[in-house]
Amino acid sequence: MTASPILEVNDLQVEFATRRQSLVAVRDVSFALGAGKTLALVGESGSGKSVTSLAIMGLLPTAGRVTRGTIAFQRGSGETVDLATLSQPAMRHIRGAEIAMIFQEPMSSLNPLFTVGDQIGEMLMLHSNLSSVARRAKVLEMLDLVEIPAAASRMSAYPHELSGGMRQRVMIALALICRPLLLIADEPTTALDVTIQAQILELMRRLQRELGMSILFITHDLGVVAEIADEVAVMYAGEVVERAPTRPLYAHPRHPYTQGLIASIPRPGRAPGERLVPIHGTVPPPSAMPPGCAFAPRCPHAGPECEAPVALTEAAPGQLARCVKLRELAAHA
């Protein structure tokens, strides 16, 4: 990891207030993302990965609130701000301009009533003083950059006139037109066909090289993670349970949950007839969180010692895991 990360999340806790109680959706989440790097936030639905990303963007739903921790973001000016406490007006200058986001559903994430050109151009209108002619030229350039064929004629197209892959390209163009320092990609390929997925990932990698932004990549798909991430943070029930550079994580997953995830990926190398190993059970709801390790109820290695709270500890150089039985597990492996 570089000396000064562009994004450093420390001990983040997000709570959702309901009528009766306050539920902790994300707790003790810490990670750092270096300039030009990609960090994957991996987890099942309900693991808190999207909530974490929305907290960074300052776009939590009204019931949600950051109740602890800091989100340090190094701005283009070099100044470091805490996004967790920044005011909404100040946040608006960062959103879109310095941190941009793309979403899972390219079908519904674009406004159906505005043309592609209008929607991308609006970004420039909000964050620059360019004339409408200059904006148009930049939008066109950006559409070329995301490899949309016949870009000039697509400017005046409406989202429903484009395919899913094209819409996601439009979303990427929209997100990157102000050259943000950080791109948050929330499951950007999940809704796409596998072939289109590969194209979009390739496009994101190329744009990252050319534009030099950092990417926070949110996904549940470990296959995609291996393609794009430098480092991975695995989330489970609102916590980061393992954090490691991509290669060691795949080679030697330390946390039983990560091990389970990797064991459940189908691979071409498997023997015919070999069974995939599923993780039994489901993620506990935030209202019924176990006192100790959140994964313990589903963990094949769980014992009485797992009922005490557990912190992220170093399992191997550069690799952190949240498990009390790390030593024991390593000995068995």
Binding site: L59, I94, R95, G96, A100
Partner: peptide
């Protein structure tokens, strides 16, 4: 979703 997108544009 597009309302969220609009917000994300700042």
């Amino acid at each position: 979703d597009f309302v969220r997108t609009a917000r994300s544009k700042g």
